[in-house]
Structures are given as structure tokens and as C-alpha cells.
Computed example of a mutant assay.
Amino acid sequence: MSGTTDESTIAATIALDAFGGDECPGPEVDGAVRAARTGARVILVGDRDKLELELSRHPGWDALPLSIHHASEVITMEDSPAKAVRSRPDASMPVCFDLVGQGKAHAVMSAGNSGAMLACGLFKFRRIKGVDRPALVTSLPTLAHGAGSSGSEDSGTSWVDLLDIGANVDCRPVNLVQFAIMGAVHASFKHGKAEPRVGVLSNGTEDGKGTELTRTVHRLLGTASLQGLRYVGYVEGHDLMTGEVDVVVTDGFTGNVALKIAEATGRLIGHWIRGAVRGGPRRLLGAALLRPAFDELRDKLDPDTYGSAPLLGVDGSAFICHGGASGFAIGNAIRLAERSVAEALTPRITEALARHAPLMAAARGDGTPPKESVA
């Protein structure tokens, strides 16, 4: 956790829940080995015998900065999050958080039950001072800023950070205001945005659009003195793809639906392209000539390229991968978690929230924080 250790001066160790994903522990071990071959330090947490068997499939693993910490239980996707965390202290996921608390690791990663990850974050890391609810954020590829606006053929890629994507179904204005601040810090950290452009997702750009929640947040952000971010107002669904905004803020229900539609659209485009090039010898020849372009497109559409979703707002580094994440995705996520510790993402969020304390007080209205959303 952020505590008293200067995280920017340490070599980060990642505690990886090796029994969280749909096909565990194969992808977790593969991802850990991939990351370790680039110098990352990883503790694989879970059943020791099964992990040693899986590691034996990777020659030379014992010379890598990898270790195993035995955990006798697991939390499944079907488990009630808070109940499972409390009743199974030796499950691989909460043990990962304990390793951070003991100073043996500096960040946690899991492809398991996202609700249980949120519960662990709240119970074991606690919230950053001033945060009412943590949020999950993901980065989506977009057009490069300005690409195509004047007939350009520029195929460059930019990024938009979307939050929340599922941690909080029902939100109050203070939650979305905090998401905006935390999302801007994340965009600065991950994408190098000096002053990220932040928008609130709505069904139109006019001031009167949206719901009571979005209108309140729109007013608060539009009239506040903001530091380190620029509020650009309402944005619509298509703005997730245009590159005209760096951070899009919404509640977890809407954000999760938007994310799933974006991912499904990418898969559909890939399916159409594969079908189109199988229409005969001439098409196959053309596809062979265009293969480098198709490979680049595949990487842009593949969620595995982007790794994981950090849990922003807890006082520590916690990352959640998709349950079906491949070893490639987990390896990318481990390197991102390592970088988040080295570049002090959590302390930067803490500082940004403190700078905007008057705005958050105004957003709370009656000063009463919402109840926790952990089941």
C-alpha cells in the first residue's frame, strides 16, 4: 500500500492470484513467465503442487524472478464476494492482498471474481482518504486526435479511459466527480496526457440532456476550478471512438454495457474481415499482401493487448483482468502493475483528490457518503 514506503524507489513485486481465471492456472503461469522474462518479479499465489506442475511446462522458469506462495482455497465467480472474502482467509485472492500488507509484494492482480476484488480492496487496502467508492477503469483505442477530421487518412491510435466499468451500478454525483479526478490521473499516468480532457457520458451534448445525476455532475465539473484536467462537457457514445476526449465518466451499469458493446463490435469486425477474404483466390492473394495491416488491426481490436483494469480509489495497487484473459494479456497487465508502483499512481490520485476537496464537498451535498456497494 502507499503507506510510508517510497514506491518510486523500489523494484515492485506483483502478487498474482493464480486461481482466479476461467482456465486457471495455465494463463496465469504463462503470463507470469512472460513478464518475468522481461525482469518483472512475480509471486504466484495458489495451490503449490498444481503451480509447480504448470511451471514445469516452461523450461528455465526456476532461474526467473518467480516464486510460489501456497494458498489452500479459491474464490470462484459464483461466490458471494464479501462472504467469500470473510469466510476464506486462505483463498488465493485475499492472500495476495495480505502479501502486500506484509510488505512482501507491492501490487495485486487477479482474473477472478471482480466483486471479490472490490471487497478485498475495501476490506484490506481500505479507501484513499476522501474516496466514497472505488472505480474500475479501462482504456479503449480510438482515432488519433484530429484524425479524419479533414479528410485525413491517418490511421493512428489514441486512447480513451472509461470509468466506471462495473464496480458501482448506482452512483451519486460525488462518485462521478471523484471518477473524473481519478480518471484524469490515470490517463496522465498511462498515456502521458498532461491535461486530460474529461467528459460525462450522456444521450446528447446539450446542457438539458441526460439524467438528474449527469446534469448535476455536468454543472459541478463545469463550474469548478479544476487542476490537472480539462472538463469538456457532455459526450455521446460515438465520442468513445473519435479521440476528441481522453476520459469518459459514467456509472458502472452504463460503463459496463458500453464496454461490452465496444468489445463485441471489435469481434464482429474481425469476423466480417475473415469472411470477406475467404471469397476466392484473388481475395486470398489480396489478404496475403495486406497481412501486416490486418495484424495491426487485430492488435488494436484485441482486448488482450490492453491488459487489465486497475481498481482506482483504494489505498494500494490492485488490477483486475478479464476471466478469459490469455497469458499474453496477463503478462501485459503485470508490467502495467509494476509500472504503476514505480510511478506512484496511488499517491498521485491521493494528492489530486486532496486538491479538489472543496469540489467533492459540494458534490456530497449533505455530506453523507453513500453506503458501500459490496454484496
Rank of each mutant, 00 (worst) to 15 (best):
G3M: 12
G3D: 15
T5Y: 03
T5K: 12
A11H: 12
L16K: 11
D17R: 06
F19E: 02
E23Q: 15
G26T: 10
V29K: 00
A32L: 12
G39E: 10
R41A: 15
V42L: 06
I43G: 06
L44T: 00
L44G: 03
E54F: 02
E54R: 01
P59D: 15
G60F: 02
L64M: 13
S67W: 07
V74G: 05
M77K: 01
E78V: 02
A84W: 04
A84N: 09
V85S: 05
D90M: 09
A91R: 05
A91Y: 00
M93F: 11
V95F: 08
Q102K: 14
A107H: 07
A107G: 11
M109W: 09
S110Y: 00
A111L: 11
A111T: 06
A111W: 00
G115H: 05
A116P: 05
A119Q: 12
G121P: 07
L122P: 03
L122T: 03
V131T: 08
P134N: 12
A135N: 01
T138G: 13
S139D: 13
P141N: 01
A144D: 03
G146A: 09
G146E: 11
A147T: 12
G148P: 00
S150I: 09
G151C: 09
D154Y: 04
T157H: 07
W159M: 06
D161Y: 12
G166M: 00
R172Y: 04
N175S: 11
I181G: 11
A184W: 00
A187W: 06
H191R: 10
G192Y: 12
P196A: 10
P196V: 04
V198A: 08
G199H: 02
S202K: 03
G204H: 03
G208I: 04
G208C: 01
K209M: 06
K209D: 12
K209F: 07
G210P: 10
E212R: 14
L213E: 09
T214F: 08
T216Y: 08
L220V: 01
T223I: 00
S225M: 06
S225C: 04
V232A: 06
E236C: 04
E236W: 01
G237K: 01
G237N: 08
H238R: 14
T242K: 01
V245D: 02
V257F: 08
A258E: 03
A258N: 12
K260F: 03
E263Q: 12
G266R: 09
R267H: 09
I269A: 09
I269V: 13
R274M: 03
A276R: 14
R278Q: 13
P281Q: 02
L285E: 13
G286Y: 07
A293L: 07
D302H: 00
L311K: 02
L312F: 10
S317R: 13
F319A: 09
C321D: 01
F328E: 10
A333M: 06
I334C: 03
I334A: 02
E338I: 01
V341P: 00
E343N: 10
P347A: 06
R348P: 08
A352C: 09
A354S: 14
P358S: 15
L359W: 02
M360C: 15
P369D: 11
K371A: 14
V374H: 01
V374S: 02
